[in-house]
Simulated scan of single mutants.
Amino acid sequence: MKSQVAYFNGLFSAGSKSVEKKQSSVPNPFSVMVRKEVADQVRSWRFIILALLILLTFLGSMYVSMTNISKAVANAGDPDRLFLYLKLLTTTDGTLPPFHVFIGFLGPLLGISLGFDAINSEQSNGTLIRLMAQPVYRDSVINAKFVASLIVVSTLFLSLNLLMIGGGLIITGVRIEPSEVMRILCFVVLSVIYVSFWLNLSILLSVKFRQTATSALTAIAIWLFFTVFYQVLLNIIVKAFLPDPDVLSQDQLLAYNRIILTFLRFIPSQLYTDATTTLLMPSVRSLGPLTMEQMAGAIPSPLSVRESLLVVWPQVSGLIAATVVCFALSYYLFMRREIRT
């Protein structure tokens, strides 16, 4: 009798272990959706075209930097001349802008292209209803869309900067300093955050509008407004309402310049430009106008990585806050959206 009970207990334990093994072998639905979205993004023609465009601008900027790097390093009056690999990202002769300027222009297009049809295309094709019929959480869908695009953008920017470091090591043979590695990694993270803002904005518009063309045109219109028309309108308003700069004292002129800079920093591209300029140029100590009294006694020496991060932290926190707000709004609207119609 005892042997029979032990036999059945052994069968039961073996059966339970096999069930647990099968359950553990079942992949997580979120990871499956992320892998599927990454594969779709990488194979899409719009990403391939934009990635090739960013690669061409990167190669062009690196070529201009390599041809002018000897002049930049030989400039004794430049406190950043010893940072060779940072000079590869900032040196130019006027024919092509530096690489971070190209990212400030092409990064929004990359983010918009990855997210403008994230939700509404799924619903118009009828795949969203079939997806929700599976045993997955609703928030996993929008989270997978964002995480997959974030992985693609991070891999692209990290690969380009590693290519720059490797090319610099092969061509120049100069050892890269740890502070330069930290600044380049911070530049990669900042670029990913900047593109993530436009990605979340386009996902928000994809949740809000049912037509992909409407969400794409709205996102491009917002990008054009902040890139071109905002500064034009700000200059017109400044000339119309502020007094003549010739009759102002030094303190009043500094106050008005700070006001103009404050309004300019509502633009995500301005925040990105200020932050990347400070990170890639260690000698930059301030992002606003300074008086002669404030500059008196200042030694033209590069800042440490920590000090540069403290200078640009308001810009970085502003980009992060804008990104989180756009994602929270898209998350809220998607969770309350009716998908059966």
Score class of each variant (00 low, 15 high):
122 E>M: 11
139 D>M: 10
126 G>D: 02
130 R>P: 07
121 S>N: 05
129 I>C: 11
134 Q>M: 14
128 L>P: 04
131 L>W: 12
125 N>M: 08
123 Q>Y: 05
120 N>P: 00
138 R>T: 10
129 I>A: 14
117 D>P: 01
118 A>Y: 04
138 R>H: 08
141 V>Q: 03
128 L>M: 14
114 L>M: 12
137 Y>A: 13
136 V>P: 02
127 T>G: 07
127 T>M: 09
116 F>Q: 02
114 L>A: 01
124 S>W: 09
124 S>E: 08
136 V>A: 06
132 M>D: 05
131 L>D: 05
115 G>A: 12
119 I>P: 00
119 I>L: 03
127 T>K: 12
120 N>K: 04
138 R>K: 14
124 S>F: 11
140 S>N: 06
121 S>Q: 05
121 S>A: 10
130 R>Y: 15
140 S>K: 08
131 L>T: 11
133 A>N: 12
137 Y>I: 05
137 Y>H: 11
126 G>P: 02
134 Q>P: 03
129 I>P: 01
120 N>F: 04
133 A>I: 11
116 F>Y: 14
141 V>Y: 03
129 I>N: 08
124 S>K: 11
113 S>Y: 04
123 Q>K: 10
130 R>G: 15
136 V>D: 05
135 P>H: 13
119 I>H: 01
136 V>R: 10
129 I>F: 14
142 I>S: 01
138 R>C: 03
138 R>Y: 08
115 G>T: 07
128 L>Q: 09
133 A>D: 06
115 G>W: 04
128 L>I: 13
114 L>T: 02
135 P>T: 09
134 Q>E: 12
115 G>H: 07
119 I>K: 00
122 E>V: 02
115 G>R: 04
142 I>T: 04
123 Q>D: 06
129 I>R: 14
124 S>D: 03
134 Q>Y: 15
118 A>E: 03
127 T>Q: 07
136 V>Y: 09
130 R>Q: 15
118 A>C: 06
116 F>L: 03
127 T>C: 10
113 S>L: 04
115 G>K: 03
139 D>L: 08
132 M>Y: 10
116 F>H: 08
130 R>L: 15
138 R>Q: 14
122 E>Y: 11
116 F>I: 01
137 Y>S: 08
120 N>V: 01
125 N>W: 12
115 G>F: 10
116 F>P: 00
140 S>D: 06
140 S>R: 05
117 D>Q: 10
135 P>E: 08
125 N>G: 09
126 G>W: 11
126 G>H: 06
136 V>E: 07
137 Y>C: 06
136 V>S: 04
118 A>R: 02
134 Q>G: 07
142 I>L: 13
123 Q>V: 10
124 S>G: 04
114 L>C: 00
121 S>I: 04
137 Y>N: 11
132 M>R: 09
134 Q>W: 13
118 A>L: 05
136 V>C: 07
123 Q>E: 10
119 I>Y: 02
137 Y>P: 00
141 V>A: 03
130 R>F: 15
129 I>Y: 15
136 V>I: 15
121 S>G: 00
124 S>C: 04
134 Q>T: 15
135 P>W: 13
135 P>K: 11
124 S>Y: 09
125 N>H: 14
113 S>V: 05
114 L>Q: 02
122 E>K: 08
